[in-house]
């Protein structure tokens, strides 16, 4: 029975379900308890589950992420919240040099079943230290799974799959998605590693994830009004990539545009572009195009921020140019 809720409520319901269904689960991070979470994703959880399992931490990202690693090694299933992915840089050592590699470096003896959630992305006028999209950096790490729930449904049910993973899972929640409303089937149990076709189409494959999905879908609607049927693919899982799904799409449409809010250079979009070049080059009718963020620290002023981020209009324009050039 589908119910309607916001993305934020979906995250909260997912956390509550995790805490309720497995006594090994604990939630910790900055202001997750009494404050209710910087994005209000954990409001009410302290009251329901108590301070042992919903833990406010000091502003010590490296240490509370490392404590999550240790707790996971010690038999718990911690969920660590980092307020934004910019702050995750303070914990990069623990994620990169410890969590991601411990299983391999220990010869398979120590798995780290740790889930780390963090907000990412721009568009809220919070300037250059709170607006980045670093998920592509983390998606380069062997040993981790990286998720980017883009729909309310995925916000509600992907955590369940993440907690079943025996190794570290990083979940990126785009800040613009929190107020988005959607219908949710709370019992749905999808494979977190599968990408999804959010809109079928025959003319071009638009490959995206996270906060760029609504913009890409909006662009696809505009294009449809002009007779261009775009297929929109939501990657959902950024590592490992569901490569076959988007390659199949590209082989059918013969065109691909990758939409990624990170900077162009060395981005996930660049990786996807390379994969298409390596494995579907002869199916292409046009070079792969990318719509990413301008190579600039995200400015505060609204018109500049808008200009720096991928927007529906730019996606639309890119597709039209592609269709015109190689139609």
């Amino acid at each position: 029975m589908p119910t309607t809720m916001t993305y934020r409520e979906a995250v909260r319901a997912a956390l509550a379900e995790a805490l309720r269904s497995d006594e090994r689960v604990l939630l910790m991070g900055e202001d997750v308890g009494r404050y209710g979470g910087a994005f209000a994703c954990s409001r009410g959880l302290l009251e329901e589950f108590g301070p042992e399992r919903v833990r406010d931490t000091p502003l010590s990202e490296a240490t509370f992420v490392g404590a999550g690693i240790g707790a996971a090694l010690g038999g718990m299933r911690p969920i660590v919240e980092i307020m934004t992915c910019n702050f995750a840089l303070l914990a990069l050592d623990q994620i990169v040099n410890h969590a991601a590699i411990m299983r391999h470096m220990s010869g398979g003896q120590f798995s780290v079943p740790l889930v780390i959630r963090m907000a990412s992305g721009g568009g809220r006028r919070v300037a250059a230290q709170h607006s980045n999209s670093f998920e592509g950096w983390f998606a380069r790490l062997p040993g981790v799974t990286v998720l980017a729930p883009a729909t309310v449904q995925d916000a509600r049910t992907m955590l369940r799959g993440a907690l079943r993973e025996p190794d570290p899972v990083l979940i990126f929640e785009h800040i613009l998605l929190y107020p988005v409303q959607g219908e949710v089937d709370e019992q749905a149990d999808t494979d977190i590693r599968r990408a999804a076709v959010r809109r079928p189409g025959r003319d071009v494959s638009l490959i995206t994830y996270g906060g760029s999905l609504p913009k890409t879908l909006a662009a696809a609607e505009q294009l449809a009004a002009e007779g261009i049927e775009a297929e929109v693919i939501d990657l959902r899982c950024l590592r490992p990539l569901d490569t076959e799904l988007f390659l199949d799409s590209v082989r059918r449409t013969h065109r691909a545009v990758v939409v990624d809010e990170a900077w162009y250079t060395g981005s996930l979009a660049a990786e996807i572009s390379a994969l298409i070049m390596e494995r579907a080059f002869y199916d292409l009718d046009a070079p792969v195009a990318r719509v990413c963020s301008a190579e600039v620290p995200l400015p505060y002023a609204g018109h500049l921020e808008d200009a720096a981020l991928p927007q529906a209009a730019a996606i639309e324009r890119t597709v039209k140019e592609m269709m015109a050039g190689h139609g």
Binding site: G66, I69, G74
Partner: peptide, 25 residues
């Protein structure tokens, strides 16, 4: 024996977490 960590100081937070798990369990 939980390693063998060669990032100086990197083991301390992990020890804190192991202790947290022991306490909670």
């Amino acid at each position: 024996f939980f390693g063998g960590h060669a990032i100086v100081g990197g083991g301390l937070p992990i020890a804190v977490g192991l202790a947290l798990a022991a306490r909670m369990r």
